[in-house]
Simulated scan of single mutants.
Amino acid sequence: MERLPTGISVLDRELDGGLPAGSVVVLKAEPASQSELFLNTFTHVRETLYLTTVRSPDAVDDALERSAVRTGDPTIEGVDGDAPLKQTLDRAASVPRDGTLIVDSVEPLEASDPVRYRSFLDDLRSRVDEANAIGVIHALKRGTASANRVATEQIADVVFDLRTTVTGTEIANRLAVPKFRGGAALEEPVKLKLTDTVSVDTSRDIA
C-alpha cells in the first residue's frame, strides 16, 4: 500500500514511511497545545488545501508565514455561514491529487445534526480516497465526547492523540497513535518537543 510521508521524520520512521494514501487522520489535541505545528508541517510535504472554520484565511496565512517550521504554499479557504457541511464538501472537491486536505478545526462542523454529520463524514472520506490524498481533521479536545465526536473518530483511519501535560516547570508532549487502519498502531507514545518546530524529545523521564 502506497505511503505518503507526513513531513515529521520521527512519525514517518515509526509509521513505516508515513500514512496510507486515501487515509483520513484525526489529530486530537488540547486547545492550548502546539498542535498547529503539525498542521503547518503537513503543508510542506505536498500540495495542500487548507480549510479553516474558525480562524480567517488571512490569519492562517499569517501564522504559516511566521512559522519556524518549513511550510508550503497551501490554498487556504474559509468555511463559514449557514451551511458549513456543504461548504466543506464543495471545497473538498478540489483537494489536490496525491495531496493533503486539512480541516481546521472540526468543532463547528460537529455542531450539525448527527445524521447529516455522519453523511458528511462519509462523503469527505470518499473525496480524500478518490484523490489518493491524506485528509487531516483537527479535533480539539473538550469534556465529554459528543456523539458527533465519536463519529469523527470512528470514520478516521488514523487517530493522532497529542497529550500535553504541565507539571511544575515542565511541559511534556506525547503523541499516541491508538488507531491505524492499514498498519500497526504505535505500542508506546512518542515523546516530542514542541517549541517552534516538531522534534524528538531526547530528555529522559525521571521517576
Results as ranks from 00 to 15, higher is better:
V26S: 07
V26P: 05
K28D: 03
A29R: 00
P31R: 14
P31A: 14
Q34K: 14
Q34A: 12
Q34W: 03
S35C: 11
E36S: 03
L37T: 07
F38Q: 04
T43A: 10
T43V: 03
T48R: 05
L49W: 01
L49R: 01
Y50N: 06
L51A: 05
T53E: 01
P57H: 11
D58T: 13
A59F: 07
A59W: 09
V60T: 11
A68K: 07
R70D: 12
G72M: 11
P74V: 09
I76K: 00
E77I: 06
A83M: 08
A83C: 02
P84I: 09
P84H: 09
P84E: 06
P84G: 06
D90I: 09
S94I: 02
P96A: 10
D98S: 10
D98P: 01
G99L: 05
L101Y: 01
V103Q: 05
V103P: 00
P108T: 12
E110Y: 01
S112D: 14
D113H: 05
V115T: 14
R118M: 05
R118P: 01
F120R: 00
F120C: 00
L121V: 03
R125F: 01
S126G: 04
V128T: 10
E130G: 10
I134E: 11
I137R: 01
H138F: 10
K141L: 08
R142E: 15
T144C: 03
T144F: 12
A145P: 02
N148W: 14
N148F: 08
V158T: 13
R163V: 08
